[in-house]
């Protein structure tokens, strides 16, 4: 128990885990997967976008899990690493955008493509993540005040919502991965809201 907690809290191990998805593309490149090598920017673009999205959903699930299972020991440890996971999501999103430049030939195309909902929604989500990453330092929390900081960082939910739409628009046929990535988070959040509402009514009854 203590061992798992310590593992999660160990920065070296946790950061290594977070950077593993960035090393993963080396595998198809070295083993000569022709499907990947045929169109490498597309593969890298999707790979990093996928992980930015997955990490965002992961970090957003920490709080509701903690609310629902307050006694699960490793959730406390995970919650202490929220910032690392959130920043990792931003870093992957940056790499994703970088490959978008290679994939779609640079700034002029990106600016031109902002009129396309698929691109615009992705860029908006990225701007939110940038804002949140820029204010992820302790100093920023002090400067903004905990309350403001907290409400501002709720924009992460909006970012997740935009990412879900971005991903759904990304293919000719609705990609089912949107469901298995975002549905668990949606259920968690709904359960958390119900839980909070119930708790409030219970305490209200007790007080009266």
């Amino acid at each position: 128990m203590n061992f798992v907690t310590r593992l999660i809290r160990s920065e070296i191990i946790f950061y290594s885990l977070l950077s593993l998805p960035a090393l993963w593309p080396l595998y198809p490149f070295f083993t000569g997967n022709y499907t990947v090598l045929a169109d490498p920017t597309k593969y890298l673009l999707h790979h990093f976008g996928f992980w930015a999205c997955l990490l965002l959903v992961t970090v957003l699930s920490f709080t509701p899990l903690k609310v629902l299972f307050p006694k699960l020991f490793f959730l406390t440890a995970l919650n202490s690493q929220r910032r690392a996971v959130g920043v990792a999501s931003f870093v992957y999103a940056c790499i994703h955008l970088g490959f978008q430049f290679l994939h779609e030939s640079g700034w002029p195309t990106l600016v031109h493509d902002l009129r396309k909902p698929f691109i615009l929604i992705g860029v908006l989500a990225f701007l939110i993540l940038t804002l949140l990453a820029a204010t992820s330092f302790n100093a920023a929390v002090r400067w903004l005040g905990a309350r403001t900081w907290k409400s501002m960082h709720r924009f992460a939910y909006l970012a997740a919502f935009l990412v879900a739409i971005h991903q759904a628009l990304g293919r000719k046929i609705f990609p089912k991965q949107v469901i298995w990535i975002f549905l668990p988070l949606l259920i968690l959040e709904i359960v958390r809201l119900i839980y909070r509402y119930k708790k409030k009514t219970v305490s209200a009854v007790v007080l009266s």
């Binding site: 045929a38 169109d39 490498p40 030939s105 195309t109 493509d113 396309k116 990304g170």
Partner: peptide
């Protein structure tokens, strides 16, 4: 005539690698 999600003005040449494929 653009595709709703991307430009059709240029194309990625399959086999062109990461940096040299447009």
């Amino acid at each position: 005539v653009d595709h709703p999600r991307w430009s059709q003005g240029s194309e990625r040449v399959i086999g062109g690698g990461v940096f040299n494929g447009r």
